[in-house]
Every structure is written in structure tokens, then in C-alpha cells.
Amino acid sequence: MDRSAVRDVIVTLVVSAILIGVMPMLISTYTLTVLIIYGMLGLSLGLIWGFGGILCFGQAAFFGLGAYVYAISAVNVGESTLPMILAVLLTAGFAALLGAMMFYGRLTDVYLGVITLVVTLILFKFINSTAGPQYVIGKARMGGFNGIPGFQTLNVPGDPGAYIWGDAYYYVCAVALIIVYLLVTWLLRSSFGRIAIGIRENETRMALIGYDVAARKTVLFAAGAGIAGLAGALYASWAEIVTPTLFSLGQSAEIIIWCIVGGLGTRLGPIVGAAGLAYLKFLLGQQSMIDNTLIMGLVLVIFVLFLPRGLVPAIGALWQVSVGHKVRRRPARRMRRARNG
């Protein structure tokens, strides 16, 4: 690992440790937990859209799928470790199949958007229609519109009686997000990540260099879906119920808005966008004067017009202007010396 990577990891750990300690003083851990989960969901789309150039309108489908896989297997297994793993793997597997179909079919962006959107709709409609007693997977009744309640929530691995909830669950989710964030960082620094960015920039060129673009996009798509699946499973364990609204188009659209507002093409942006907007929605939900979707729309319009690159890149640029020039002076002097001597 080179020095900048080590520095990246240390900064990530220090900043997140401070945030994990400080944030509960400002916001209740119950709310913070779901903000973290949304952050992870935002990061999942941020990875495949911001770094892979794959605009997926169906990220909520993977989120919902993760939640349902967790719920169904938790009812059947009676503990949470295996369901968590299944939620990630099955969601990623589903995305790999869907992705392979789309990418090997050489679909363009628009059709990709349409297909992911339709898949979300199909899942929503299907899960909604599973109300009858015939819709049973093992011991789990699908429950249709009412969803699945009363499954085993997160427990200490190997001890189904030791539930992890409340503040402890907040810390588990925070650590999970940090691990996912570091894994994404590692992925993007690896050759695979750099090649994925190359593909985002120019698919034809990467194919002409000799890269199997479809295979790489499929893998990245599946990785993003796996993260969304994990977020879904954590959400299920937090909400203690899963319902078809997880698959709603509104949810999918919101994830896209998180990424745009937070800053596409950054790792932090989608997390900040997700947590920030979800908290805003939470605050707006406590009043009934203005419809909160209206405010969400307004926020998106304002960002697209005035901060098209998003919050995190804008703050980064501001940092560069105010602090960066002091830092930049040093290499300039070094270059001058090199020229003279």
C-alpha cells in the first residue's frame, strides 16, 4: 500500500471515529442508524454510477431485495448471520444476471435506465400481490402489501438470543459503513477500479485496448447491488418489518437525487447526500404545512442549477481556493529550483 492510501485509511478512521462519537449528541441514535443505512445505499449507487457510469434507476430494487432476502431467511433460520450473508450474495447474484443480460446485450444508457426501472416496478407489483396463504417461502409468509413482520433482528453471531439493538445497533451499522467505504476505496484504487473509471470515460477505447467491458461492468454492477443488499438487510433489521414500499419508484428516484446533490464521482458525496437529504425529509415529516416531496424537488433543482457537481466537490473546490494555494506554493518553488539547477 502506498503512502497516500495509508493516509486515506487513517483520515477515514479518525474522521469517522469522531463523527460516531459526536453525532449521537445531536441526533438520536435511532434516526442516525437509518441515516447511516441510507448513506450506504447512496454509496452503492455512487459506486456504479459515479465511477462505472452505469445509471441504474432500480437501486431500490436491490435495497428491497436485500431486505426481503434477510427477512425471509431470518424467519426460516432463526438467527441473523446467515441471512445477512445471503442478503448480500443473492442480491449481487441477481444483479449479476440482470447486468450480464443488459451489458452483453450492448444496451445503451436509456434502455438500461428503462430496464432497471421496470425491474423495480415488477418486483413492487409482484411482492404486493403475494397476500394469499399460498405465497410462502419455508416458514415465511410473504404477506403482500402488509409485508413481513416479526423476523429475527440482528444478533451476536452464534447466539440468537443476544440481540443487537438501540445504541449497539447504531455502532454496528456505523462500522459496517466504514468497512464498506474502505472496501470501495480499495476497489477504486485497484486496477479493477481504475479500469472501471476508464470504461466510464470511454467504453469504445477500453474495448479497443482489449478489456471485456461487458464483464467488468457486470461485476461492478453486482458489487454495487451487493452493497445495496447489505443496506437493505440492515434496514430490515432496523425497521423490524419489510414492506413492498421498499421497492417503490420514489425510493429509487430519491437515491439518484442523493448522488446528484452529494456529488457524483466522489465516494463521500453520495453518503453525505443520502444522510443529509434523508434527515431533511425526517425533519420535514414533522410538519404538515408543506409537502416534503416539493422541498426535495426544490433542493434538486437548486443543486442542479447552482452546484451541478454536488456538495462535496463544491466544498472541495472551496477548500482548494482558501487553503490549497498555501499548500501549492511549495511544489512550485521546487520546480523553479529544478529548472534553475
Binding site: 476508464g198 470511454n202 477505447r205
Partner: peptide, 24 residues
């Protein structure tokens, strides 16, 4: 064959319009 398969044989290809990764 697909372009990436042809390229994998050790064939270098430059297209008519510059095909490069602009943001890199």
C-alpha cells in the same frame, strides 16, 4: 469477434475520431 477479443490478440487500434478518456 468483438473489438476486445481482436485487441487481446495483440492488435493496436486507433479510430478515426480520437477515442480517449477525457477526464483522465
Amino acid at each position: 469477434w468483438m473489438p476486445h477479443q481482436v485487441a487481446s490478440l495483440g492488435v493496436g487500434i486507433k479510430t478515426q475520431t480520437p477515442n480517449v478518456m477525457d477526464a483522465l
